[in-house]
C-alpha cells in the first residue's frame, strides 16, 4: 500500500513545497513587475512567461544542463556536495521555474487592476509601503492570489516532461504520479495506472470547482 501511494504523496509534497516557495518569491516579484516601469520590462515578462509556451522537454533539457554536475549551477553546488539532478530538491527547483508564470501572471494582473488611488490613499493616511502592501493591496486581490496559488499547485501536480528530464523515476525520490502512470502503462499494468489517473482527474476537477466557486463568492455572483 505504501508503495502504491508513494507517487501520490510525493506529487502533493512537491506541489505544496513549490507553491509555498512561489508564493513567497513570485508574489513580491509580480508586485514589482506591476509597479515598475523600466527599459526591458517586456523582456523580463517574456522570460517569465516562457514555461507556458516551451515544450516541457526543452525546459527540462536546459535545466538538466544548467543543474547537472558540469553545468553552471550544478558545478558550484557540487563543491558544497549538493546535487540537484535526480533528487527531490532538484524537482522543487525545476518546478518553481516551470510553474512561475502560473503564479506571476494572474497575481500581476490582479495588482495592475487595483486602482492606484487605493495605495495612494493609504500612503496619505500615514501608512508605510509595507503596511499598505499587507493590509490594502494583498487583501484586495484575493481572487488573483487564489487563482495563482491553485494554478501553480495544479500545474505542478500535472507536470511530466520536466520531472522526467530532471528527476527520472526513482521510487520515493522523484517518481511522482504522472511518471508512475507512464511507467505502469508501459508495464501494461492498467489497473494501477487507472487508480493514479482517477485520483488526479477527480482532484483536478475538485480544485478548479472550488476556485471558481470561491472567486464567484468573493465577487458577489451566484455560485
Amino acid at each position: 500500500m505504501r508503495e502504491l501511494l508513494s507517487p501520490l504523496i510525493l506529487t502533493f509534497e512537491l506541489a505544496a513545497v513549490t507553491t509555498v516557495l512561489l508564493a513567497v518569491t513570485a508574489i513580491p516579484f509580480a508586485y514589482w513587475l506591476s509597479s515598475a516601469n523600466f527599459r526591458g520590462k517586456s523582456i523580463v515578462e517574456s522570460i517569465t512567461g516562457l514555461p507556458i509556451v516551451l515544450p516541457p522537454s526543452v525546459l527540462g533539457f536546459y535545466l538538466l544542463v544548467f543543474m547537472g554536475p558540469h553545468g553552471p549551477l550544478g558545478s558550484i553546488l557540487e563543491q558544497f556536495n549538493i546535487r540537484l539532478v535526480f533528487t527531490f530538491e532538484g524537482l522543487v527547483f525545476a518546478s518553481v521555474i516551470y510553474s512561475l508564470p502560473f503564479m506571476v501572471q494572474p497575481v500581476q494582473a490582479g495588482f495592475e487592476a487595483l486602482p492606484l488611488s487605493l495605495k495612494e490613499a493609504s500612503y496619505t493616511l500615514g501608512k508605510s509601503k509595507f503596511q499598505t502592501f499587507f493590509r490594502v493591496v494583498l487583501p484586495n486581490i484575493k481572487p488573483s492570489l487564489i487563482t495563482g496559488i491553485v494554478l501553480s499547485f495544479a500545474h505542478t501536480v500535472g507536470e511530466f516532461g520536466v520531472v522526467l528530464m530532471i528527476g527520472g523515476s526513482i521510487p520515493d525520490q522523484t517518481r511522482v504520479a504522472s511518471i508512475a502512470i507512464y511507467d505502469q502503462v508501459e508495464a501494461m499494468n492498467y489497473h494501477t495506472a487507472h487508480f493514479y489517473s482517477a485520483v488526479l482527474f477527480i482532484l483536478a476537477f475538485m480544485v478548479l470547482l472550488t476556485v471558481n466557486m470561491v472567486n464567484r463568492k468573493i465577487s458577489g455572483k451566484t455560485i
Binding site: P115, S117, L118, E120, A121, S122, Y123, T124, L125, G126, K127, S128, V136, P139, N140, K142
Partner: peptide
Amino acid sequence: VPVNKRKCGFVFQDYALFPN
C-alpha cells in the same frame, strides 16, 4: 518628505475606500 509623513488628508474623486 515622503507622502506618509506629510499628514495631508486626501479625499480622492473616486473616494478610494478600501473594499476589503
